[in-house]
Design a protein around this nucleic acid. Structure first.
Lengths: 198, 198
DNA sequence: GGGAGAATATGATTTGGATCATAAAAGAGG
DNA sequence: CCTCTTTTATGATCCAAATCATATTCTCCC
């Protein structure tokens, strides 16, 4: 997360999007650096059958879509507002200039990419193995430890819908519902008022 | 890729590994930065059934396993020599010092992570959709464009075994064999002397 | 407060990739 | 050059997640 005063000093604009708006599309070249100011953004793909895969969900303070600013690649996914949102938007040139001039900011961006890569490595390995319950526990544990930063047993409440969990894990929503029920029976998690606790 | 003289100047050692040796294991904390000097290294996971998933294969000049040096995470996968190999090994402290002192090197590492993240985003989305032929074409095209840097039709020869392709894509080797045969029939690729051309 | 839409849930059926078994061909090493 | 291992290949069967269908409950908006 880059300090918002610094972003504004470099000419960033704070742009509003409505729920459902698209910020960019898979395959496009990057023109801007983005960081969430309010609301939530997701990056996703749709396959030929229209099935959605969510690469990540980004909330206040989190940047997204950095790789095409730093390497000769295009966006690997779409970006879409999950709620009404505001986003800091800084041109690629200004962003690279900011990194050059602020080594600590550059290190933070590198740390962000490192965390993102870590998450992806876990997910790709989980998704490639045919074990929905293990997959679901793994992503919930990741969110508990790295996003919620919670340690107590059943202290972490998952604030994702079953459909979002399905889209993040490559499963069908029916499979997620059945697997979370099964995990509850095994004592691996708790469900209260339809919310999952881990 | 960091220039090897620079690595040596910062105290890197050139360490030899035999085919099959492990450099580090999933879940361990990182102590060193690694870059391949000769041979090939893969990063992989095994699931409970012993099925392997290959996160990436690294050849001469390529670094690997960077995220735990840059963020508070552990190795998400094992590292294993695919052939007899030599690897530059630099302590974490020296590595971070090198980045601080050499912004251009830091930017190269950031670019490496960005490319790695791009590849992962493609693969995780592909693996989450149930389309083996599309998945196989997608990874071959990625390797053709970003690793082989080849453009002509059927000019790129894939130097991976069917088993390695299976391990990289989360499929079974039988599925890969049948899918590549089917793609050949569709004219999407060619197979000569059991080698795939795309 | 009510209605519409979204989310959760359950049941039944299908199917494609996994799995198992086996064979042939190529490569590597002695 | 021979043997053993690895890789590629083919055929048959299985099954778990996808898919399809339907119902219930909760949330949001007017």
């Amino acid at each position: 997360m880059i300090d918002e005063n610094l972003l504004l000093n470099y000419g960033a604009k704070r742009v509003a999007f409505s729920k459902g708006d698209q910020l960019f599309r898979e395959g496009e070249s990057a023109v801007n650096f983005y960081q969430v100011a309010s609301g939530e953004i997701k990056m996703n793909n749709y396959n030929e059958d229209g099935k959605e895969f969510i690469q990540g969900i980004f909330s206040i303070g989190q940047s997204f879509g950095e790789p095409p600013l730093l390497a000769k690649v295009k966006y690997p996914a779409n970006a879409e507002a999950i709620s009404d949102a505001e986003v800091f938007q800084l041109s690629k040139e200004q962003f690279l200039d900011l990194l050059s001039s602020h080594p600590k900011v550059h290190l933070k961006i590198t740390e962000t990419l490192a965390k993102r890569l870590y998450y992806k490595a876990i997910m790709v390995s989980e998704i490639s193995s045919q074990e929905p319950e293990h997959r679901i526990l793994r992503i919930i544990d990741y969110l508990k430890q790295h996003v919620g930063k919670v340690e107590g047993k059943f202290d972490y409440r998952l604030d994702l819908t079953r459909q979002q969990l399905a889209d993040l894990t490559g499963l069908r929503v029916e499979t997620v519902i059945r697997a979370t029920k099964s995990l509850e029976k095994k004592g691996e998690l708790q469900i209260k008022k339809r919310k999952v606790y881990r």
